[in-house]
């Protein structure tokens, strides 16, 4: 109804279009409200430097969340992404320093570790018939455990050439933000344009109908979890390069932030629904909130309370909007 009346008002076409976009996208409106509110509350918030800082803070969770978007659209769940990110970063650091491998090979090994972890989860789910929750919970524990084994519990310095990923380009654009944008674009293209992407929506929407329509569901699921592992590895490398070292406790609990970002972005945990743009917005909301609360010097303890409330509120608003 609302959109119809807006369409008919021609004089303010641009404004009307913007309003329509906001009305149809609860998460985006929430982000805009947050940005406006914080820019009033804190003078420092709107500075370019701070906004880029927010981008950097959002990057790791966003990249993890893009990978999780694939899994969640296909009606699965991946709890292992935080551990896999830490494991991949540790493999990179260890093979470049302790094992003395060339850096490019270390990077390849690191990414391969992420993909292999995802493949293993996928195999357990497709052929072992384990529920995704259990298979990836196991992988969460295995990934964290291996990280501790390899690193023997202490941080390993990251090779300098890779640590540049934590720097900026041209003195202002942080590389993590760039990686996040590239990963987001890749996610949008995969979801919208590729076979595997369309298969994710079909499997998440109705797995049996997808199977009886000739989609090789088991094979696709393995690829989907491998993709999630790939994105986790990228996120792990970005995180470690920011810290200039692979830390065994890095990305601890990030899988929940990733899932929260996907869900705030409008995806459904029962599958079949979700978009890359939504996930990006979800990750940005989490980062803006943390940053803003820091600027307002809200204690870290209360921050958790606020973030929990916002997650509930964002999803609640979205649900109400859809019903109404």
């Amino acid at each position: 109804m609302a959109t119809d009346t807006l369409k008919s008002s021609t004089d303010t076409g641009g404004v009307a279009a913007a309003r329509r976009v906001l009305l149809n996208n609860g998460a985006l409106s929430a982000l805009v409200v947050l940005l406006v509110a914080l820019s009033f509350l804190s003078g420092d918030f709107l500075s370019t430097q701070n906004l880029l800082n927010v981008g950097v803070q959002a990057a790791v969770v966003a990249i993890l969340a893009f990978g999780s978007t694939f899994v969640i659209v296909a009606a699965g769940i991946d709890l292992s992404v935080g551990s896999v990110a830490a494991l991949s970063a540790t493999v990179l650091a260890w093979s470049a320093s302790s094992a003395g491998l060339p850096v490019w090979l270390a990077v390849v090994l690191s990414v391969a570790t992420g993909v292999a972890s995802g493949l293993l989860s996928g195999l357990l789910i497709s052929f072992g018939k384990l529920p995704p929750f259990i298979a990836t919970l196991a992988m969460l524990s295995i990934g964290r455990g291996l990280t501790l084994v390899i690193s023997q519990g202490s941080p390993i310095a990251f090779p300098d050439s890779v640590s540049h990923l934590g720097d900026t380009i041209g003195g202002w654009l942080p590389v993590p933000v760039l990686v996040m944008i590239v990963a987001g674009a890749a996610t949008a293209i995969i979801l919208g344009r590729t076979y595997i992407g369309r298969a994710m929506y079909a499997i998440g929407g109705n797995e049996e109908a997808a199977r009886l329509s000739g989609i090789r569901v088991k094979r696709q699921k393995i690829i989907i979890y491998a993709l999630s592992g790939l994105f986790a590895a990228v996120a792990g490398i970005v995180l470690a390069s920011r810290l200039a070292s692979a830390q065994p406790q890095a990305a601890y609990g990030y899988e929940l932030d990733a899932i929260a970002a996907v869900v705030i972005g409008g995806a459904s945990l029962s599958g079949g629904v979700g978009k890359a743009s939504g996930t990006l917005i979800g990750a940005l909301i989490l980062a803006v909130l943390r940053n803003g609360l820091n600027l307002l010097s809200v204690s870290a303890f209360w921050q958790q309370v606020v973030i929990g409330a916002v997650i509930a509120l964002a999803v609640l608003l979205d649900t109400l909007r859809r019903r109404g």
Binding site: T194, Y195, G214
Partner: peptide, 13 residues
Amino acid sequence: LVTLGRATRAGFV
């Protein structure tokens, strides 16, 4: 849905 595979070239639909 059934023709998804056939409409795919190099992974793109």
